[in-house]
Design a protein around this nucleic acid. Structure first.
Lengths: 349, 349
DNA sequence: TTGTACGCGTTATCAC
DNA sequence: GTGATAACGCGTACAA
């Protein structure tokens, strides 16, 4: 609940009045001794306005610290110059990088970005989409959504979206990398270096990318007779990786290799291994997913699958901006090839 | 330049018309056979509305997927329920944590957040403040600003702000930790474990927190005769730390200890040390600042100064929300005590 | 209990 | 060249 709602109405009003009113176009017009139309003309640089009048208006605007009201402007133009960005968790470096990419590109195209975190919760995703629709965002960059496509489409109701990190089908706009292929490559790498018992720590249930990675994991296993696999549930966070690893290390037969659903969990695995005196890569090999900046700096440095988060975010934002500008011939889909970065966590002794 | 501006006007219009018009309060009123006032009443749950009329309106709203237009609403209520968040770089974990905290608290208080990255550039900070003012954000959380306070105050012009990570003076709203004390503690720790030549890699010029850390560094040195210090310019990013360390290690007399202005640069130092075969902590001790999640997982794990980024963000957002709600007795300032977290990068052999 | 009419700040369409 | 004025979608006195 918003605290302010509980205040007596009269009080709210009083407070509101305390907020300094920003100068409006009317104030500028009065100050400059012209009509609002003329002011609007110099603001938007259209129509004819005499040199000296122009000058007077400019000065009035400066005097009053005038800033055009984007709200009122949006009301008439039906354009808010705002994009929505929905991510599972900005505190997660992978999504933070995407967010940064989205934002950079948005600003360059004259848009501003509203950010929301879902913690992978579908209900929050829906809530935020509605919130953003109400605020008339012109488009949404939706990252790592796990929602049903039909529900989503109905809810979006014509609002342009770019899906990030999810293989597109119903949606024409998408930026993604093939998580199944990435997972396959990761798992195959473990097989190739000699692991015959491999565990996979998966992402949150119903996350499409987590699901795809699981599928890729199994596909790699199926192609290699004599290699055994198992899956443990994770949550794409440190803690999940840590817990899964603890569970894994306390069982009878520990695996020879672990494919973690993402880098964050892999770092949790490393920590758990350290605590339990298990050496990586000597005792167990480890592969992550995402190639977050951290992957290079942990010990041992982490073999992982490159995702190019910043570029993906940037591209998503670009697609949206181009589409909103009505540019034809813009690629609406872009797939990024997942590539493996081999580091010390899979060194063969 | 926005691409869309270059399009012929007629075309823009045509495109705009393609966007599906959302149902308005009028549509709902017509559908339900009542006036807009009545609809407004059921939306905002005020005034008296007959039971059956209420029901009809509710159904009409559902039928039309009606979503109240926050833009129009904001125009009349003068409240946009939007907060601005300006950070140097969300891709930096420290700021990402702050951002997450700000966002969580904002949503809980009914606000939505607009995010902008400055890369520590003053001109961008100013640009974004204006942008946000134009969008009528109700308040701004300004993180790590380096701007002159008077300029800032003039630019803000009465718009509520909470400064984060900057010692307050002109601004009544602030959440910060004492960077000078933190730096002092960090440096003193290096002295205490026996370093007599200590280098400090500082943050970007004009960053108040970077400046304060430099001051704390020197204060610690002054208190200890026979301890020599030097300062190298950094930028609060990996690369800056890496470059500074390379320079440091190639000089005649390398330091015995390094106090890095933040953890990101410290990680860069570790990487540079690895490349050059210099061992931490055996050859050189290292202390960072921020205690980002990563600090625990790098090798060697990093001794650093705890900052509690998430809590600070959350608190900043809370102060803003409370102030906007007009609640009295709300603490407007909150200082967080910097504490040292000792890990392996300062192990004494 | 319900409806009419005005205003929020701006842009677009006419007149002058 | 310039100025009224009608929208945009909604909240809200005030009237009915």
């Amino acid at each position: 609940m918003r605290a302010r709602l509980s205040l007596p109405r009269c009080l709210v009003k009083e407070i509101r009045f305390k907020v300094e009113r920003m100068a409006t176009i009317k104030d500028v017009a009065r100050q400059a001794g012209v009509s609002v139309t003329t002011v609007s003309r110099v603001i938007n640089d259209n129509g004819y306005v005499a040199k000296d009048v122009h000058q007077r208006v400019i000065e009035a605007m400066k005097d009053l610290h005038y800033q055009p009201n984007a709200i009122a402007r949006g009301l008439v133009s039906r354009r808010t110059e705002t994009l929505g960005l929905i991510v599972p968790d900005v505190a997660n470096p992978f999504f933070a990088d995407i967010a940064r990419g989205v934002e950079d590109e948005a600003i360059e195209n004259g848009f501003t970005v509203i950010l929301c975190n879902t913690d992978w919760k579908l209900e929050r995703e829906q809530k935020y989409i509605n919130l953003m629709r109400g605020k008339w965002v012109e488009g949404i960059v939706l990252v790592g959504s796990r929602g049903d496509e039909k529900d989503l489409a109905r809810q979006l109701d014509g609002l342009p979206v770019v899906m990030v990190d999810r293989k597109p089908s119903a949606f024409r706009n998408a930026v993604w990398s093939d998580n199944e292929v990435g997972a396959y490559v990761a798992t195959k790498h473990l097989v190739d270096i000699g692991c015959s018992r491999i565990a996979h720590i998966s992402g949150p249930e119903d996350s499409p990318s987590a699901e795809a990675r699981k599928v890729g994991f199994f596909r790699a296993l199926e192609e290699h007779a004599g290699v055994y696999g198992t899956v443990l549930p994770g949550d794409f966070r440190y803690s999940g990786g840590f817990a899964a690893a603890e569970h894994l290390f306390s069982r009878g037969v520990p695996p020879e290799g672990i494919f973690s659903g993402n880098d964050m969990m892999a770092v949790g695995v490393i920590q758990a291994a350290n605590r339990l005196g298990i050496r990586i890569p000597e005792d167990i090999k480890l592969v992550g997913y995402d190639n977050i900046a951290m992957a290079e700096y942990v010990f041992p440095s982490l073999t992982t699958i490159e995702q190019r988060a910043y570029e993906m975010g940037r591209e998503a934002s670009h697609i949206l901006a181009a589409q909103l500008a009505g540019e034809g011939g813009v690629e609406n889909e872009r797939e990024y090839e997942p590539t493996i970065i081999v580091r010390h966590s899979t060194d063969v002794s």
